[in-house]
Amino acid sequence: MDKDQAIRIVVASGKGGTGKTTVATSLALSLAAQENVWFLDCDVEAPNGHLFLNPKIEAERKAVVLIPRIDMEKCILCGRCVEVCQYHALAEIGKSILVFPQLCHGCGSCTWNCSSKAIKEIRNPIGVLEAGLAKKGINFAHGVLTISEPMATPIIRQLKKWHKPEDGSVMILDAPPGASCSVVETLHGANFALLVTEPTPFGLHDLKQVIGILGDMKIPAGVIINRDGIGDNQVDEFLSQTEFPILMRIPYSTQIAGAIAAGNTLLDVSPEYIMEFQTLFQKIKNIIAENEPC
């Protein structure tokens, strides 16, 4: 890796509620004194990072999908746009072309294939992007999907393009739960995936789903076991058969759970974790270095 490039660490989990945001915010806050830290909350359906990092939002822009608007004066009703649209976002009904914005992925195919130049693309807002300085000088940004809009992935893609980390900085990306396309979009370009799980059958099942993505994307990864001590030891047994190291364990404690529920960070209740997260970052840097192609 180029020395000047930012290090991008994605915090993912598969199962929701395992502590992704707790880990991502704690890592960001622990490194803030020594690194130029950027934070990107990519869980645009249910973004929570701001609740713990308290950013002062200074910049805002709309997240959009470019949807077609058809000039019926020019349209010759040839039906080509309907035919090329793979998402069925267009229909030729009677003497007009109907557009279904929520089905449109904004690929532009209808526009390019319109022989009478009757299609103009307009910006259809599906959410907002917001950025600002947060606690300890962290460069924070998140995307927020508008309620009733279906597509999260374009917002994540636009958020990553909009809030690009400075050279030499460390960017922490908080991923959405699950293991589908929105997680892939978050992981795209990552140097490391930090997987947060809990030692339960659900935690293990969903961890395996995320690991399934990483193989294809060739991103090195390590695991944090949160709420260590509950459940069973299947996660440990599974990981011992893989190349993924367990980098940290956070024992279950009602005190921690209560503090985080109230909006405090892990570091507020247990400041000793600052050192742990700094050590974790060193381990991550070492793993990234080992995975560098010569």
Partner: peptide, 27 residues
């Protein structure tokens, strides 16, 4: 599913009643 996007909207389609399971935390 968690979230509010496409799969959630599909899960809701045609529902007669939605039970929201929440927890007392800021998130």
């Amino acid at each position: 599913p968690p979230g509010i996007g496409c799969p959630v909207i599909s899960a809701c389609a045609g529902a007669d009643l939605g039970l929201i399971v929440t927890e007392p935390s800021v998130a």
